[in-house]
Design a protein around this nucleic acid. Structure first.
Lengths: 244, 244
DNA sequence: ACAAAAGTGTTATCAGTACACCCATGT
DNA sequence: ACATGGGTGTACTGATAACACTTTTGT
């Protein structure tokens, strides 16, 4: 890492933080699909276009904290899952000035998404059929979608869309919505149970018709160290570790 | 993405690019293990400590290009594989000033690593037993190692350590060095052939004792769409597909 | 009673693994 | 000829996919 005394006097490159947010909401047919909130740009350039929530990085704020703060301010949402996605820095991605954006991706619970403010400057759109966004944001969302779909299978991602407790059918619907294909309920059940990531609550979901399903809770503590290494893709970065 | 007219007048956060470089070199017993080149800091802070090659991001240079350039200038190496790793931005990771580092990781061929300059300010060390590095660079290398080891199995990473043509034994040695465990030669051969990523050159490696092995070349064009899917990432669990 | 979803059992298939064995060449 | 690494055959194992089947509830 270099240091300040090696710098030219001015540094016209700007550092921003943005976030791609995903939530599950029912589409017109009632089945859950991925939606993402966008905010309308209120300044030049690209005034009026829809864009990802974000902002400049304050000098004294952590990257992840800046991501969480800006998405809360603009959309009112509090993410249940937040992870760095990629850093986009092409010289010409913003007209007139060099902007490097550290982009995060976030998952929010469905019910929170339903409550969320959707004023004139916030708009939810299906993640698979986006309108034309500002800057290179279409490309960014597409990359985030790809990451979500390749990662949902081995991390504790799916349950970030759900509440504290959930049924196996609800969990399966999350997987089906993310992966965009049906899954065998019988096999899905066994795979999930075998993963040891779920704990029974003892409760059953009441109120609906038919046989009441068991309610489960997510529980990472039952993982063996070996299984955790392979199942959870949490980079060692984000785990507590002795100083090296 | 915000824009310049929303900025405070000065922006004391600095943007740097660094690279973790891996190459295979024989250890004292002759078996290949991972090595990484370090450069000595010639300025404060942390003057004299070993650090990752890197530098400030020039306003008109692409991120990846800056990574390739700085590692070439400091170590003389030209990477065969270069990919963004992560962006490190903790407020206190550099004393005195906020530095956000976009870190890349690179693989170079073994023979190039052997040729490489190793002057008084460049030093190669085994990647698994690093000395104390400047800033948070130990943590960065550990993360890069983790990424390499989890990714080598499904991407065209291994052949980046080798020349244009190579034997299956050489390719297997790369995997063994990266994964740090022996692999069954028979099964390794079949797995690689089945992947359709290798093409026979028709040549054989001469000169060595014993039966001359076939020489192969890496060939991504022979991948089926299905195999490409799996190369990218896909762990099992939900590979169910409607029978096609 | 019955429809529908929850939940269980069973089998075929396939990828990964272990390891016995044959092949081709330089010495 | 023979030692050695190159290369092939084959059987075992465990995870997954497909789907028939039983259970439990609300209506």
């Amino acid at each position: 890492m270099p240091h300040a005394d090696e710098l030219p006097a001015d540094a016209p490159t700007r550092l921003a933080v943005s976030t791609v947010i995903f939530a599950l909401r029912p589409d017109h047919s009632g089945r859950p699909v991925l939606w993402t909130p966008l905010v309308r740009r209120t300044r030049e350039p690209q005034l009026g276009l829809w864009a990802l929530p974000g902002g400049w990085l304050p000098p004294n704020e952590e990257l992840e904290s800046a991501a969480a703060r800006t998405l809360r301010l603009t959309t009112g949402l509090a993410p249940k899952y937040l992870e760095q996605l990629y850093t986009f820095g092409e010289v010409d991605r913003s007209p007139g000035i060099r902007v490097v954006s550290v982009v995060y991706w976030a998952l929010v619970q469905s019910d929170e998404a339903a409550r969320a403010t959707a004023g004139p400057n916030v708009r939810w759109v299906p993640a698979d059929t986006l309108p034309g966004l500002a800057f290179d944001h279409n490309r960014i969302v597409e990359y985030a979608l790809w990451r979500l779909r390749t990662k949902v299978e081995y991390a504790e991602i799916a349950h970030a869309f759900l509440g504290e407790t959930f049924t196996l059918a609800e969990l399966r619907e999350v997987y089906e919505a993310v992966l965009q294909r049906p899954l065998d309920p019988a096999n899905f059940r066994r795979t999930m149970i075998a993963s040891r990531r779920l704990r029974e609550t003892g409760e059953h979901l009441a109120g609906a018709a038919h046989r009441p399903p068991k309610l489960y809770r997510y529980d990472a503590s039952t993982l063996t160290a070996d299984a955790a290494d392979r199942l959870i893709d949490t980079p060692p970065l984000l785990r507590e570790r002795p100083a090296s």
